[in-house]
């Protein structure tokens, strides 16, 4: 157990190398994509569609390399603080993953079941993930919010959110 902090700190260093990797990968993708473009000879557009992507790709790759060097030399980015943020404890995946789950559920449900159902699932699931345990009260609030926004958007803004399964009832 004594070695765990060093393992953890090493892992943390490594996880930031992932950012460098992501930047590098993004740079390569931008480069390859731009490389595949055709540059028609044109007097009116001497710059062409490739120049800016090449510059961006270069910037990304340079940042990736410098960041990797920086991290290996012991540099690290400062996690963002805030009013409601307590950086003393590590990332609480037990909250984040269910939140993402609720979000994904909404994406899957919205077209088929409609906004009123998917929105209720999203809000209720998020509240649950964040620690709300008043199941009935939370459910009523979720349902009310979804129905209100459904009609609010339809009547107020003229945007018809999908009714899905409840088509005909709403």
């Amino acid at each position: 157990m004594i070695s765990s902090p060093t393992v953890a700190s090493r892992l943390q260093g490594r996880s930031e190398l992932g950012v460098a990797l992501l930047l590098g990968a993004a740079g390569v993708v931008v480069f390859l994509d731009a490389n595949g473009l055709a540059t028609p000879y044109s007097r009116s557009d001497p710059v062409g569609p490739k120049t800016v992507p090449f510059i961006v790709a270069g910037l990304l790759v340079i940042c990736a390399v410098l960041l990797a060097v920086n991290v290996l030399r012991g540099g690290s980015g400062e996690a963002e603080g805030g009013e409601d943020v307590d950086l003393a404890h590590p990332v609480d995946w037990k909250t984040v993953l269910p939140l993402v789950g609720a979000f994904v559920a909404n994406i899957l449900l919205i077209g088929w079941a409609g906004w009123v159902i998917s929105g209720t699932v999203l809000f209720w699931g998020s509240v649950w993930a964040l620690g709300g345990r008043h199941y009935v009260r939370d459910g009523l609030i979720s349902l009310a919010l979804s129905i209100l926004t459904f009609y609010g958007f339809f009547l107020g803004l003229g945007i018809a959110l999908p009714a899905g399964l409840l088509e005909g009832i709403l």
Binding site: D86, D92, T95
Partner: peptide
């Protein structure tokens, strides 16, 4: 921001 704050909620 919401995900980030959720990951580091201040408890006290």
């Amino acid at each position: 921001e919401a995900l980030w704050v959720a990951a580091h909620l201040r408890r006290t």
